[in-house]
Amino acid sequence: MPSRVQFREDRCKGCLLCVQACPSGIIQQSSRFNQQGYKVAEVPAERMAECKGCAFCAIMCPDFAIHVFKTKEAA
């Protein structure tokens, strides 16, 4: 069941609590700045397949900036 993390980059403040929380260790700080001047968190595209969809990152995010999606087979 593949999963996907989406960061709302306009909300991210680059605190990196999600990096600490991710059990797969796939989240990292990007070199991009958002409009507020924070370096946003990201998951590199090549490592997205390792996402288990546990949503630990979203539980720890203080800015509601993370959405986690799971793909299910249609019933």
Binding site: G53, H67, E73, A74
Partner: peptide, 17 residues
């Protein structure tokens, strides 16, 4: 195939920075 959002922020939480 159907994509489901796992994170459901409650409606009472206002969507603003």
């Amino acid at each position: 195939m159907q994509e489901i959002r796992v994170t459901n922020y409650p409606e009472v939480l206002v969507d603003r920075p």
